[in-house]
Amino acid sequence: MSDQLPRFAAVERVVHGTLGVLMIACLLTAAVLYNGSLALAVGHRHAVELVHVWSGFALPVPLLLGAASSAYRTDVRRLNRFTPADWQWLRSKDRRSGRIRVGKFNAGQKLNAALSAGAILLLLGTGTLMFFTGLVRLAWRSGATFVHDWVALALGLLVIGHLVFALRDGEALRGMWSGRVSARWARREHAAWVDEVRPPPAG
């Protein structure tokens, strides 16, 4: 029995990587558009705006194209679904001990996915209202700006949190980079998933 388990298909890794690059482009240009000192230091507002707007409109494209892959669709379903063990994991204080047997994704990853997806949709919608200024009346455009600002701030913090957790766990990073993880790591972090993809020998 090999001590490696396949974790992410090539399609999933490409979707994740493309989304990551577009997300970072959006967040960096957002910082320039929003922060006065950065805005004046960088200038070139129209160019920065073009990068921001088109990276933003492109953001959902890899997410939608990925749906052609059944591995991707299955993982989206896993991220969407919460089991009793997920709720237990969220409430427990020793959630990292491995006592609670979580599936392929822990509840934190699932929440991150749901909040990111919701935030991306909100930013797309409100960004569209801000970019095509003829769509709605001024008061709603002001409301769209209000929502866009707050959601962008929250998503920026979420992405930073996501990166911090990823960088603290080399094996998790390797899983997203190469697609494979060690069975030892998987048993500790995602025991229920290991049992599912590699059933224990019947007693």
Binding site: N80, R81, T83, A113, A114, W140, T145
Partner: peptide
């Protein structure tokens, strides 16, 4: 229970956020 058969909490979170967003656009000003 398999992870694939849990309750669709992710979808509820996304829909909830979208609802809040609509309220935010209308009342944000």
């Amino acid at each position: 229970r398999s992870e694939l058969d849990g309750t669709p909490v992710g979808r509820r979170v996304v829909l909830g956020l979208l609802g809040l967003g609509v309220v935010g656009v209308v009342t944000g000003s």
